[in-house]
Simulated scan of single mutants.
Amino acid sequence: MRETAVAPEQRHSESTFRKLVRSLIIGLVLGTIAGIPIGWFTHRVFAQQRAAQVLLCRQQHYGQAEATLQDLCGTVY
């Protein structure tokens, strides 16, 4: 089998492209690994905060009808 001659600038371009693609893939993998726990934790904190706000509002308006409470305070979910 005979190798064909490739221009040096084309070889450099292919090498640079491969490095960019590899870097992109590594970045996506690391971002996913780091992002999932951060997103889960953030969602949990905000969900707990919202639940606390709704419960506090319901306590402040104790004795009112359920429809009125939902209009004033909203729902936890």
Results as ranks from 00 to 15, higher is better:
Arg58Pro: 00
Gln64Gly: 02
Met1His: 13
Ala52Cys: 00
Val45Arg: 12
Cys57Gly: 00
Thr42Phe: 03
Arg44Thr: 14
Leu56Asp: 12
Pro8Arg: 06
Val76Gln: 08
Trp40Thr: 12
Tyr62Met: 08
Ile25Ser: 03
Pro8Tyr: 00
Ala52Thr: 11
Arg2Met: 03
Val45Thr: 02
Lys19Ala: 08
Gly63Ala: 06
Gln49Ile: 15
Thr68Trp: 13
Gln70Trp: 05
Val45Asp: 02
Gly63Val: 04
Ala34Val: 14
Leu30Glu: 02
Leu72Ala: 09
Glu3Ala: 12
Ser13Arg: 14
Glu3Ser: 10
Gly74Leu: 07
Ser23Thr: 15
Ala7Ser: 13
Thr68Cys: 05
Thr4Trp: 04
Leu72Phe: 09
Thr4Leu: 07
Tyr77Phe: 13
Tyr77Gly: 09
His12Tyr: 06
Ala51Val: 05
Trp40Tyr: 15
Gly63Met: 03
Ser15His: 08
Asp71His: 08
Thr75Ile: 08
Thr32His: 07
Ser13Met: 09
Met1Leu: 10
Arg18Asp: 14
Ala7Asp: 07
Leu55Gly: 11
Ser23Asp: 12
Gly39Thr: 02
Thr75Pro: 00
Gln48Ile: 07
Val21Pro: 00
Arg11Asn: 08
Leu69Arg: 06
Ile36Leu: 06
Gly27Trp: 06
Leu20Gln: 14
Glu9Gly: 00
Gln48Lys: 13
Gln10Cys: 01
Pro37Phe: 00
Leu69Asn: 04
Gln60Ser: 11
Val29Cys: 10
Arg44Val: 06
His12Asp: 15
Gly35Leu: 02
Leu56Arg: 10
Glu66Phe: 07
Lys19Gln: 05
Glu14Phe: 13
Gly35Lys: 05
Phe41Arg: 12
Gln70Cys: 01
Arg2Val: 11
Arg18Glu: 10
Phe17Lys: 15
Thr4Ile: 10
Asp71Tyr: 09
Leu72Gly: 04
Ala7Tyr: 05
His61Glu: 10
Arg11His: 07
Ser15Pro: 02
Val76Ala: 01
Gln49Cys: 01
Ala34Lys: 04
Ala47Val: 06
Glu9Ala: 07
Glu14Lys: 07
Met1Lys: 09
Gly31His: 06
Ala65Pro: 08
Arg11Ala: 15
Thr42Met: 09
His43Glu: 14
Arg44Lys: 08
Trp40Phe: 09
Gln48Thr: 06
Thr42Asp: 03
Val29Leu: 15
Ile25Asp: 02
Gly35Asn: 05
Ala34Asp: 04
Leu24Val: 00
Thr16Glu: 15
Leu28Ala: 13
Leu30Met: 15
Leu20Phe: 08
Thr75Cys: 02
Cys57Pro: 01
Ile26Ser: 07
His12Phe: 14
Thr75Phe: 00
Ala47Gly: 08
Gln59Cys: 07
Gly39Val: 01
Ala34Pro: 00
Gln60Asp: 05
Gly63His: 04
Leu20Pro: 00
Ala65Val: 02
Gln70Pro: 04
Leu56Ile: 01
Ala47Pro: 01
Val21Asn: 07
Ala5Phe: 14
Glu14Ser: 08
Phe17Thr: 15
Phe17Arg: 14
Ile25Val: 14
